[in-house]
Computed example of a mutant assay.
Amino acid sequence: MKKLRVVVIGAGNVAGIAVRALRGREDVELVGVWSRSKHVGQDAGLLDTDEPCGVIVTDNADEIFALKPDCALTALNIRDPREAQVVNGEWFVKLLENGINVVTASDGGLVYPPAHVDQAYVARLEAAAKKGGATLYMNGQEPGFVEHMALLAATMSNTIKRITSYELFNYSSVKDRNEMALIFGFDEPPEKPAILEHPGMQLMVWKGPVTNVANKLGYEVERYEESYEKRVTDRDLKVGFGVIKAGNVAAVRLRTSAIVEGREAVVVEHVNRMCPDIAPEWEKADTVGCMRIRIEGDPNISMECSVGDPDKPEELGYDGYVMTAMRIVNAVPYVCAAPPGITTFRVLPLTTPSNAFRSDATFIDHKICRANT
């Protein structure tokens, strides 16, 4: 079997895990890694492990294209969705026009392109894909996997009043304060707005998922609603990136809703905490992290996917990144075999991993997750 040649664009958490996960597979091989971070010039294997892989991180895009890869996995760590669309879009167009398939977790709106907030952008990507005869696929843990769960749960429904997808994570082990503060508002005064608090920002990420579910059930969305709530801590909290002082934000609840036939019908809700006892009135999990589907209807259905090892809660953040990375790493062969254009999980077969039982050689007992750029 000829292995598919894969390049990784980025050197952060998801990219580093992707580099590790591409090793030892029968159908794919890593041939290049691009970044403009401090990791340029180092062996890409050291992004996530202590084992070199023989591929050196470069900041020269021409070198990446000269490798003539079959697929590019893009995982640029850009926190503002508006900036991310611009930067990722340029990469997507150039890769696709050069006949290189793309898998990415970097633009939630592309999980379901008909609902993307910028249809001119979608048309540009579609044209680039058709020109180069290549395919673009966006997925991840959430958006991506969670609405996959929601639709699976709905196959057991007769009637549905409301279907809600929850992400319930304790983020106290996360070591990157900038990500937590800028995106969510953690460790900031409550009056300081986070990126996701601005009107329309949630829709850039979750309009696609809620519309996807509604449309698959046969309904058009009449309008969307967004809400953002915060809770402050009454004491200093020691967390992965330092200390959150009393009076600063330590829990957030964000909710994106699709209104169908005059009522809230499909919802994505995130409840993220820095300690388990804050905001007890909000949805809670019995573990440090889970994704939950709740269908109110005939019958009532609840389905939950717990994340990480309950005995090692400090690894929750890492395990979340692994889940995101694997949704696109595992998709590489399926995307390379798909017709040109933008594809989705509703079109592709289940993207199960190749030779997954090969050994435990790709598992690392001590999870490093050293990349943060």
Rank of each mutant, 00 (worst) to 15 (best):
T373N: 13
R292L: 14
K312L: 13
P340N: 02
F345Q: 08
N300P: 10
T155C: 08
Q42S: 12
S37F: 04
D27V: 07
A11C: 10
P189F: 10
S172D: 14
D80I: 06
L125Y: 09
A154I: 08
L316Y: 03
F169K: 03
L168K: 09
D48I: 05
R253N: 07
T287Q: 08
D48H: 14
A15I: 08
R23E: 07
P340V: 06
T135Q: 01
V8C: 04
V146R: 13
Q119M: 13
V146A: 13
T211G: 09
I293D: 06
I17V: 13
T58I: 06
F357M: 07
L196Q: 07
M138R: 01
F65T: 08
G54W: 08
T351R: 07
D27M: 06
T344G: 01
K245T: 15
I328L: 08
V14Y: 03
G341P: 05
P143C: 03
E179N: 12
S302I: 12
K230V: 02
N77K: 05
L196R: 06
L125K: 06
A72I: 10
A129D: 00
E229I: 01
D107F: 02
R263T: 15
V6G: 02
E188S: 14
D107Q: 04
R124A: 11
I56K: 14
A325E: 09
P353Q: 10
P340S: 08
I368W: 13
Y219D: 04
W91A: 03
E296K: 13
P333T: 08
A153Q: 11
D365F: 11
K175Q: 11
L350V: 15
M180T: 02
M156F: 15
D298K: 11
W91D: 01
A44W: 00
D176V: 10
V267N: 06
S106W: 01
E126Q: 15
G247D: 07
S354R: 00
I100D: 03
T362R: 10
A21K: 14
E264P: 00
W34I: 11
G247V: 09
C53R: 03
